[in-house]
Design a protein around this nucleic acid. Structure first.
Lengths: 198, 198
DNA sequence: GGCAGACAGTTAGGAGGCTAACGATGATTG
DNA sequence: CAATCATCGTTAGCCTCCTAACTGTCTGCC
C-alpha cells in the first residue's frame, strides 16, 4: 500500500468548519479530492493484495504487462484499426511506459531476470541497447494469473452500472487533464527557506 | 510518486481486443479501474509537488494534519454538533489515523522531532505511552503552507461543477465501500507455489 | 503478591522507489 | 576524421515504507 493516507476522511461539516479558518479551502473540492485519493488507494490495495498472494509486486507486474502487450497485441493489428500493441522492448522504453526512471527499471529487470521471468539480450544493431523478452515461464504465469486479476478488478466496479462507469471515466478524465495542465504550468512557489528560517 | 503505473492507458478498443482472449476481462470495469488509479495518481502527484517544494513529505504532512486537527478542531465543538476533532495524540493513535504501522510512525516522528516540528513527552499516567505535540514552528509552518495547499487541491477540481463533484463523491464512495467489503471477505486464492513450481 | 498475556514504542533488516553520476556507444558537425 | 554531444544501461547512496522481533509497562486471574 503505497499511499500514506488518512484512514477516516473528515466529514463535510468538519471541512466547512475548517473553511472558516482558511478561506482558501473549498469544501466540495477538498471532499472530492480526498475521496478520489481514498478510492484510488482502496482499489489499488485490493489488486495489490491479489498480486502479493502470487508473490509479484506491482512494479514487476507492470513490466510483465508491458512486455505481454508487445507480444500479444502486435503493432500490426486488424487492417484499418490503429494498433494496440507494438509495445516496448528496451529498458528505456519500459521505463517510459511504466512511468519510472531507467535506474528503477534496471532494478525491476534484475529481479525479474533473477526469477526467470524475463531475459536480457544485447541488441545486435545498437550495442548500447538491450532487448528484454518474456520467458515461457512468465507467459504461463500470466495465463494463470490474469483471469483472476481481471475478475478482481471487475468486482471492484460491480456496484457501478454501465452508465455510472461512463460518467466516472468522464469525470476522472477531466481531473487528469486538469492535473496535466497544472504540471505543465509553473512550478509551485518554492518557499524553500521557510523550513530552516523559522 | 508512489504508484508505479502505466503512463498511457490502453484505449477502449484495445481492452475489447484483449477481452477476446480473456473472457474474465470486463472492458468497462477495467477502463474505470485504470482511470481511477491514473486520476488518483495524477491528483496525488500535484499535491506532492507542492509538498516537495516546501521540503515536507506526504507522510510527515499527514502526521502534522492529524495533530493539527486535534488542536484546532477540539472534541468539544459547537453544542449539539458531533465533534470534528479530538484527534490522536499518541504514536499508536497517529499510526491508526494515518493508516501506517507503529514502526513507520516512529520513524516519521523521529524525523519530525529532529526538524523541531513535534515534541515527544512521556505520558504521566501510563508510562508505556508517549504524547506527541506540535511545536510553535509547526504551527507557523501550517499557517503558511495550508492556504496554498488548499488552493492547489481546489484547482485540481476546478473543471468539475458542484453537481459533478457530488456525483463523483457518490461513485467513489460506492467503490470504497465495495473495496472494504472485498478486503473483509476471503483472502484471494494464494497460488503460492506457482512462482517456484513452474 | 506473582505470573501470563496484552499493549506501547522502538529497533533491525529488507524491498522498492528516487537522484546523480558513470562508462560505453552512437550521432552530429566542423 | 576528430571533437562534441546525446543516449543507453548501470551503479551508488538516500528516503520511506514494510515485517518481525525486542523491551518495558499495565492488566487480570489465581
Amino acid at each position: 500500500m503505497p499511499l500514506l493516507l488518512l484512514k477516516d476522511l473528515p466529514r463535510y461539516e468538519c471541512l466547512l468548519e475548517s473553511a472558516k479558518e482558511f478561506p482558501d479551502l473549498d469544501p466540495s473540492a477538498a471532499e472530492a479530492y480526498l475521496h478520489l485519493l481514498r478510492a484510488g488507494d482502496d482499489a489499488f490495495g485490493i489488486s495489490q493484495r491479489n498480486l502479493d498472494a502470487h508473490g509479484i509486486s506491482q512494479g514487476r507486474f507492470c513490466v510483465l504487462m508491458l512486455l505481454w502487450r508487445s507480444v500479444h497485441l502486435p503493432a500490426t493489428a486488424s487492417p484499418g484499426v490503429k494498433p494496440c500493441g507494438g509495445g516496448p522492448r528496451t529498458p528505456a522504453e519500459l521505463a517510459e511506459g511504466a512511468n519510472v526512471t531507467r535506474a528503477t527499471m534496471t532494478g525491476l529487470i534484475d529481479t525479474l531476470e533473477r526469477d526467470s521471468f524475463v531475459k536480457r539480450e544485447p541488441d545486435p544493431v545498437d550495442r548500447r541497447m538491450m532487448s528484454v523478452r518474456l520467458t515461457a515461464k512468465a507467459e504461463r504465469f500470466l495465463q494463470d494469473f490474469l483471469p483472476g486479476h481481471f475478475r478482481t478488478t471487475a468486482q471492484i466496479m460491480t456496484t457501478l452500472s454501465e452508465s455510472e462507469r461512463k460518467t466516472l471515466v468522464r469525470l476522472l478524465t477531466k481531473i487528469s487533464t486538469q492535473a496535466a495542465e497544472m504540471v505543465g504550468g509553473p512550478a509551485p512557489v518554492a518557499a524553500e527557506p521557510c523550513l530552516n528560517a523559522l
